[in-house]
Each structure stands twice: as C-alpha cells, then as structure tokens.
Design a protein around this nucleic acid. Structure first.
Lengths: 282, 282
DNA sequence: CGGCACGTTGAGAAAATTCAACTCACGTGG
DNA sequence: CCACGTGAGTTGAATTTTCTCAACGTGCCG
C-alpha cells in the first residue's frame, strides 16, 4: 500500500499570504448555484462571494487552521489530504470544478485535512456564517447545503468500499472511470485527459504503491483499454474499464441473508482479469 | 480482503413494520443534547421525539428507502453497511450510543447505506424537517447539527487513511483501541468488553479476511496485549496497542516537502512488529 | 446427539510490496 | 546548444503479506 512522500512542487505553506492582488472577481449566489449544479433557485440576495486564486503547489488551508470558510472549486485541480505524524501524505481526494472543500473543518472549528492546488486554481470563498445565514432566508439553499455535505459522505463510503474489496487493477480502473465521468460532468473530454497528479498521489489515494499503480496502468494499456503516456490518458474502452472494476481480486461471493433471499448466488471464481473483456488493441 | 457474507440473524427487512407497540418513551431536546455530548443549551422548545426500539437483526433502514429522518443511538449496537450488487456487505461502521445514523440519506433524499441492529437497540427518531426547523430557532443547535455531520466525515477520513496504509495487525489494533475509547466515552469499561460483531464484520470493516482478523487477534493475544476468547476482549496493554497502530507494515517513510522542512526522517525499517513493546504475557 | 454457524489454525498460492536498475522528460548552466 | 542533474515513471526479480483452501475446535439450539 501507500504513504505519500511527494517532494512535490513549490508548495508555499500558509494560506493567508495568498496574493489577493489578482482576484479576478466575485461570485453571486446564482453563480454558485449553477456551479454546483443546483436547479436555479430564485434568490433575491445580492450577496457576493470573493474569489481566491491559488497557484499550483500552494496550500488552500492546512489541518489545524481555524475554520471559517468553505471553498467551492471554480477552476483547476487540487488534492486534499491528511498528514500523519511522520509527515506522510494520505490523499483523500482530488477536488475539481464544482466540488466543495473544507467541510470537515466544521467539526471542532478547525480544518481536519488540508488542500493543495495541483494546478493554478480559482476558488470561491464562502464564509460559513454567511452560508447558514443565507440558508435561513432560502430553504432550498439550506437543503442543498446539507445535501452537499451528505454527498461527500456518500463518496467517502464508496472509497472505503473500494479500498476494502478491490484488487489493484480494479482500483486503478475505477479511478480512471471516475475521473472520466467527472471530467465529462464539467465539460471536459471523458476520453482524453491529463492526470494532474503524480503516481505517488494516485497510489496514496488508492492504497497502492507507485509501482503497483504503474504496473496496473501498463496492464490496462496492454489490454487495449487505455492508452497512457506519462500523464496523458486516452480511454479506449470505457465499458471494459467499468467491467474491470467489478472484478475484485479476492471477493468471496457470499450473499446477504436478509429476510427475503436475493438473486441466486454467482459462484464463478475469479479467473484471468481480462477474460471476456472486449480488448480492442490500439 | 473482504466482502461480507453474513447469514446473520433474523433480519426483518422493512423499517416501517417495526412494532411501535412497545416504544418506551419520548426524548426532549435537552435529552438529545445530553446524548450527543453538547453543552446544555437553553431550548424553550417542547418538541418531543419518538423513540424506536429495534430488535437484534432488524434493519433500521435500507439503502434506497425514502429518506425522512435521521436517528441517534440511545442504546445498543448496530452496523452500518453498503450492499454491493452481488449482495455482499461492506461494513462502514459500528454505531453505538450517541452516534448519528442515516445522514447519508440527505443526498438524493434516500438512504445510501443501511443499518442493522447487532443487539436490541433504542433509537431516537428525528424527522429531518423538524431538525432544521429547530435549527432556525436555535443557532447553537444548528451549529451542532453541522458539526455532527462533519464529524462523520472526519471519521471516514480516518478510516480511509487506515485502509490505505496500515498492515493487518495495525488495523486490528486500531480497531480495538477505537472500540475501547468509544466504550469509555459512553460509560462502559474500556478494558473489558464484548465484541458485538462477527469476525466477518470486523474483517469487512477493516478490509481483511476473517482468517487474517483471527490471526491478528491471536498475535495480539500471544504478545500479551489483549486477552481474547471468542467475543470477550480484555485489553491488557492499551499503550502497546496504540503503538502497534503506528507501525504500518509497509510505509515508505517519506516526508512531506512543504515550504519548511519537517523533523528529520525516521529511516528505521520495519522489524518484528513486537520489538520494543512491553509484552506482559498472561 | 447432530446440525450449524462461528472461530481458529496450518500450508500453499496469489497479490502486492520492496529493492534496484533503467528510461524519459525537463530545466539549469556552462 | 548540449551536457548534466533531478524527479517521475517503468520494469524486473525477490520478498513479504495476505488470501485461499481446508481441517478442525467450540458453543448453541432443536
């Protein structure tokens, strides 16, 4: 498994000295709603939220820092992570446009994780008190707020499930599929994209070593499901990639015994991961 | 790793047909505050919340069910889990007194996971709309609500970190320490307790097979850190147990390169897990 | 006394990690 | 402009960890 090293980029530590000089503008509430994919809600508030530009390698906030705002990614790519007592990074996710950052700071009023920009980023800063205040004025917004937090929880659940059950190749396949879907959702090509993170970071996120990540990627490449050259990825067979996800290395296909019996048990054992996949080589 | 089977107990499926007949009472808002460890807040609301009794093996709610309430555990022990398409359980946690259940249902208005009672339980049912309504009347309560949700996130983060980096014995040790602490927090003995879950469930939660869980427990037992007999656990050396957590099997002790260098790198390799532990045999 | 689910233990197999060598891209400085 | 250094990524071989399979022990219930 993992443990992040990362002698990464020019990570400039504190968030406070982030240059506000070139903040390019402000966001209105409707802007934010759109950003988050909410159905347009009629808000008569004229609140404006500050944008904050963060350069690649800079921290947005650090664990232990006093919590006062959440962030929404407007553009760019980041990593969120935990730093263990040895200084090792444990990657928790890779936020991108539309994602919420810093919610875990609510508990204990200080950030529990930290976020670092992988590319130059544009964030919308939302002071939390302001957010709840607006929530009182508009029930839909408040509802959305809770849902956004809940969504994070659901995502984490999925990650836990993956780490618990999937083999290395399945994890990497899942990672790529998820990336592809998220890119599609924010208007990028789902088939061609660049990884913004190192193999180390991917490995930490997936609970694998860099070598295993690299080998898995190579295996997917050799099977013709993807093309990968350094950080440039082309997804050739998304359907097959999805299938790979569902083939955990070792998963005793036992069945849940609830009140009613479920569908008959699939007893087939795990054979070659690639068996039955439509491998269409380059 | 895992994948839960569990031909468990008499799991009665739907929540709706839960017998309300023997509901033993109601909870006032101050009751709930105490339950959750909030500083007493002065609430002049006379709202009362229903209690719901759930027998061991019964489901509290199931994934996909319409979301309308969250639950707080008043007494008893549960498991929360995800059911994959094969019907396998992925255990997400073991809620107990004071814990919040069902928050993930906010997103999409339907529960994303499910909860099953491991022992007879007493839950407080809190209709979500009621909760937000009260939140508007009392800022402290609202704040607490957000914090409780955030706390769940922080916990999940910790789980992800564990699954990503720790070896089998470290995971099991962590599991026991966490249980011990939670038991202490709710007034049980931190040294002596019964596991309410099967090895399967522990294994699923920790991303290990039952055999590995069993072996790890035996190893901890043989090292004198715990006594374990079936489900009865006695923690003999909590400090040593904590140490075991910090000894990931394979964790390249690389260091985070932020702006400032951190403490010098500990390059010592991983030797016998037990080296240097105060093993005080039975 | 079975039957059965749960738990333990051993031995062999499989997966992932570790260590090490090598390639590649990129930026620095002569 | 090219040599060179460096960090990132790839690949191979050996090792370790964990899983799998299988046998056996234990407690419980009809």
């Amino acid at each position: 498994m993992i443990a992040m090293p990362i002698e990464s980029a020019p990570c400039i530590s504190t968030m406070l000295e982030c240059d506000d000089s070139d903040n390019s503008g402000w966001c209105s509430l409707p802007d934010i709603c759109r950003l988050l994919g909410m159905a347009d809600i009629n808000v008569d508030s004229d609140s404006r939220f500050q944008r904050r530009r963060v350069k690649a390698g800079q921290w947005v906030f650090s664990a232990g820092e006093k919590f006062n705002a959440v962030f929404i990614v407007y553009s760019g790519f980041l990593k969120s992570l935990l730093l263990d007592d040895g200084g090792n990074q444990q990657i928790l996710g890779f936020p991108m446009r539309g994602d919420l950052l810093g919610i875990d700071g609510l508990h204990n009023q200080q950030y529990a994780s930290q976020a670092c920009a992988l590319t130059d980023c544009d964030l919308v800063v939302i002071p939390f008190r302001e957010l709840t205040r607006l929530g009182h004025q508009n029930a839909m917004l408040e509802n959305w707020l809770y849902r956004a937090v809940s969504r994070e929880l659901v995502r984490e659940h999925a990650v836990v499930g993956m780490l618990g059950t999937m083999g290395a190749e399945a994890r990497v396949a899942r990672f790529l599929v998820a990336l592809s879907e998220r890119f599609a959702a924010i208007g990028y090509s789902p088939n061609c994209f660049n990884l913004r993170m190192t193999r180390q970071e991917i490995g930490s996120y997936l609970g694998l070593t860099i070598e295993t990540v690299s080998r898995s990627l190579s295996a997917l490449h050799d099977a013709g499901l993807i093309h990968i050259n350094q950080r440039a990825v082309e997804v050739c067979d998304l359907a097959a990639l999805r299938l790979v996800q569902k083939m955990p290395t070792h998963t005793k296909m036992h069945r849940q015994a609830a009140s009613e019996p479920l569908q008959p048990l699939n007893t087939s054992r795990q054979q070659s991961v690639w068996a039955g996949l439509s491998a269409m080589p380059a």
